[in-house]
Design a protein around this nucleic acid. Sequence first.
DNA 1: AACGCGGGGCT
DNA 2: AGCCCAGCGTT
Length: 362
Amino acid sequence: MKNNLIKLSNTINDWYTENKRQLPWRETTNPYIIWLSEIILQQTRVDQGISYFNKFRTKYPTIKRLAEATEDEVLKDWEGLGYYSRARNMLATAKFISSQLNGVFPDNYNDILKLKGVGSYTAAAISSFAFNEERAVVDGNVYRVLSRFFGLSTPIDSTEGKKEFQKLANNLIKFQEPSEHNQAMMEFGAIQCKPKNAECEICPLNHECFAFQKSLVGNLPIKEKKAKQTKRYFTFLICRDNENILIQKRPESGIWANMYEFPLLESKSSEEQHKIILEKEWLSSFTNTNTKVTHVSETQKHLLSHQQLFARFIELELGELQKIENNQLIIKQQELKNYALPKLLVNYISEREDLLYLLNDN
DNA sequence: AACGCGGGGCT
DNA sequence: AGCCCAGCGTT
């Protein structure tokens, strides 16, 4: 068993020195910059996160500068990346370190683990990359490499599986430099031992790999839970007068927490949603004056990891804009681009020629 | 232990 | 259409 561990460790380490990508966060040991990259990369592909990383590093070069930002501002910078609680936790942690820790990022695994938004993976990543602490990262890549190489069929999303794989990873890290080893394991999983179409024919471990020898590469790792999807039916009202537009802030829990949106009617079914369009009784809520419906959209399907959204947009022009509910804001149309909007809304605006000006500068 | 939380790429 | 991605927080 120990020989297998050494073989795996040495081979992947050698593979890494030959095949690693140049990634911007690998050029620093600044724990703040590494933390920034790791939060962005949680459940996010490198290719998707890299432009956000560059934007944040440039705009917020120090943790103090990040701590001075507002939540609205950080959410706007995070717009389009998803899992927005990451941005809110990140800002809260920056404020905490800036005010309570004298701006000094914690320098060890246990203290890093206490930070909001940082779990066992991220604490291991930061403490190994920035401080070369011997803490093994176990992310989706590591689960895949270990389960295939050793033929481990314990579900990786079970408590037992998490303990088993973490323990194995802890044993495996002892043979190399911690930072290099962690980087190598993840890079190997991302480039070579991929979820689909793993390149086993050219894999330096294919002789020792249990999954390859038993033709089980496509079956490992094993997950037991499947996220069930719920359907939701949204009707957004885009209300404008000559210069203003109506928006509202979303609740602090649920999807798109604390972001902004157009006034929203939610229906329990597709039929009920369709009635909104037909009956237009909601129009009476605008009471007086010249309210014109200028456009009613087709249904836009928007997929989240656990919800299917069926959204329609009704575009209205009013003589003078007024709030329908108290929590709403009347803002200048040219200010809309400063508010963090869900991608669903950005997508719709950008596809409608009549609305596109709302996203542009001036 | 189970669930909620985005958006995008790949098959 | 389904799976996965440099996971974490809440209940």
